[in-house]
């Protein structure tokens, strides 16, 4: 949408901050399609634990993934207060179950700190950077890396 505009104005990036598994994360607003309330899903057989099932999003069948479980932070307890963040990854649309969504942050790309942790297996981390906001620190999620393998695994 306003990608280029914001880039012209000194690389301001907009993030949506959310929490899952007791940790704070943020996701670029450009990859978020909508945010909706949790509703009952249809379970998928042979799916990994973090895939809760599929949901009807106005006629499209989209998989819902428990973000906390996908990140290895335990499973999210499902209740009516949970939020599903619908994101677009490439051409795929999927929903992430999170505890809550807090706010939209406009930050200068300079303020994003690189992720200092190095994974022992050498794989790319799902957290591309850290974003300090007030007293807390948000992890910048790389959705592509986090969900890239989904289709292949299932196939």
């Amino acid at each position: 949408m306003s990608d280029e505009e914001t880039n012209d104005r000194g690389n301001t990036i907009e993030f949506v901050s959310l929490s899952a598994g007791g940790q704070g994360f943020c996701v670029p607003i450009t990859s978020i399609r909508e945010i909706r309330r949790w509703s009952q899903v249809t379970a998928l057989p042979f799916a990994e634990d973090s895939v809760l099932g599929v949901m009807n999003l106005r006629g499209a069948v989209i998989p819902i993934v428990d973000l906390a479980a996908r990140l290895g932070l335990g499973t999210t307890e499902i209740g009516t207060r949970n939020i599903v963040v619908v994101v677009a990854i490439g051409t795929r649309i999927m929903g992430m179950l999170v505890d809550s969504v807090s706010e939209i942050l406009s930050v200068d790309s300079e303020t994003i700190r690189p992720n200092p942790t190095i994974r022992r297996d050498g794989g790319a981390s799902h957290v591309t950077g850290l974003l300090p906001v007030d007293d807390i620190m948000l992890r910048v999620l790389d959705l592509d890396a986090l969900f890239a393998r989904d289709g292949e695994e299932a196939a």
Partner: peptide, 25 residues
């Protein structure tokens, strides 16, 4: 409704459909 576009193939499952109550089967 195809599952492949947004998810991938599932063994034993051809596709999905939406029932009268809006739920997916």
């Amino acid at each position: 409704k195809s599952l492949e576009g947004n998810y991938g193939t599932v063994p034993g499952i051809a596709a999905a459909t939406i029932l009268g109550d809006g739920k997916i089967a």
